[in-house]
Design a binder for these strands. Sequence first.
RNA 1: GGUUCCGUAGCUCAGUUGGAUAGAGCAACUGCCUUCUAAGCAGUAGGUCACGCGUUCGAACCGCGUCGGAAUCACCA
Length: 591
Amino acid sequence: MNIENFISEVVCRSIEVLYGATNVPLQIQKTRKEFDGDYTLVVFPLLKLSRKSPEATAQEIGEYITANTPQVKAFNVIKGFLNLSLDSVFWGERFGEIVANENFGQAASTGRTVMIEYSSPNTNKPLHLGHVRNNLLGYSVAQILKANGNHVIKANLVNDRGIHICKSMLAWKLYGAGETPESSGLKGDHLVGKYYVEFDKHYKVQIKELMAQGQSEDEAKKNAPIILEAQAMLRKWEAKDPEIYALWQMMNGWVYAGFDVTYKALGVDFDKIYYESQTYLLGKSLVEIGLQKGVFYRRDDQSVWIDLTADGLDEKLLLRGDGTSVYMTQDLGTAFRRFEDNRLDDMIYVVGNEQNYHFQVLKLILKKLGYNWSDHITHLSYGMVELPEGKMKSREGTVVDADDLIADMISTAREMSEELGKLDDCTEEQAHAVSAMVGMGALKYFILKVDPKKTMLFDPRESIDFNGNTGPFIQYTHARICSILRKAQETGIDFSGAVVADYLPEEIELIKSLCDYPSVVAAAAESFSPSLVGAYTYELAKLFNGYYHDHSILREEDVAVRQMRLQLAQQVARIICSSMLLLGIEVPERM
RNA sequence: GGUUCCGUAGCUCAGUUGGAUAGAGCAACUGCCUUCUAAGCAGUAGGUCACGCGUUCGAACCGCGUCGGAAUCACCA
């Protein structure tokens, strides 16, 4: 049963009886922990109906409810707040429901299909910390939406064509001497990235030379032979020149192999991969439609534009004078095709906040074209990741490489675990598995616990901390519970058929916390924020840990109490596990 | 300059739709390992929620303004 609905029904009925009013909007919230009670009714909005003081109104409603609802055992009034306390039997029943419900926390199907696009890498360089935030966010939000009963399609739009990849290709052709991932021992994406940097080096030298010959910086940038050659390469690619095409396929293949490794390490995956090389021509037909409808207009040079100044935005180009498309054209086309092909109810783009304007324009254009599904497009915008030294800049070599970071996290977790003697009786395989879970858990939790839209600071020293509000703390709590359950099983203590009777206060708190899980998942989906899930899980783990230190479970002599505690521990572990899975974090059974 | 976003403890961050005495962690300080895992627990200290005005029973949250920071406003993607 849904506890919040139950409470609001109870309150509704009391108001109907006392004041004869129906459909009154109610303000019911969880009681803050400094006060007695479980749910709190804010009575200020009801004073017009009762025509009494806040205290008297709350008193009156409280008396009616306790007299007529067996599940509500007590109430207290503080100023305009009516705190209701539910009976321990009531909580016992809820706990029974959790134990019995294998899919607790998994909402019934909504029948909605949601596509979420994330990652969207360029194929000219390896993934870095910014991509890590993107991937973790996208994957986690997908998990959360699934838990809320949506059919979710995880999509990746790979930016596999364009001048950037031609730069790597050209540099490899000129200076690569046939180097391959095998011959160099480099991961494919890193190898291609190396030549992207190589291109830039030569490009800069040529610019300097041209400037020394008297050209302005802008001229030099346009006239440097190497950039002209790269542009020529792009034209050849578009003409499907066999040699260039083969080179392009080979180098992209290296990159994909490299990305696969990184994605796997991050624990993210996709249901559908789109390649820009196959979609970049989309959208032109929409431009035609827009022209016919008079939404767009053509300039003398044949380029197509939309005027959004009436909406407080600028004019936006949609098709170049030579008829080729731009980013916006493609995005219009892919959005259209996705909604049509998949009968999507919602489309979510996980893209950095530097593209806020782009998506604002995208939605507005689709709307003006008459596509109402435009309202179902969400740009899940996230902030930059900054380092203690300032911003990451690829040109200045201050980027944090994703693969390096992952390796670092895992090896630090390994060292830490060894230092604490946690891996003493483990096989090498187990030791690695645990280190990977803990290292990645720390990284994922550290990134996901901050509100996506905020710029976040990534301090490597802090991210690698395993104490306090961190992924490893939650994993640790889970491992301890598993340890208790293992010991119980080994010593033959039965806890399968425990009867729920009376509870200690701490245990009621734990049950209440477990009951919150579904509404946390729902709230997280509403606001696309994994951080809510993280905060909840941390609280739950902390609550259990606090309780667990003051009470013995296995040595409790009262059999019924012991069974009950074991079952409770089991359920806490279960919720921790499913909750962490929403963040894409695996939970070890020992660590 | 226009648009959007951000500003909460020394540091990193929470704070569901406006609700009660604004919360964690890190760093600092005090205690606690002979018991199911001390990656832990219990505690102390730390705040003009950037600032001002307004809306109301009530504002970190809503509105207007000011200050500070970020992103963006390309025939790049």
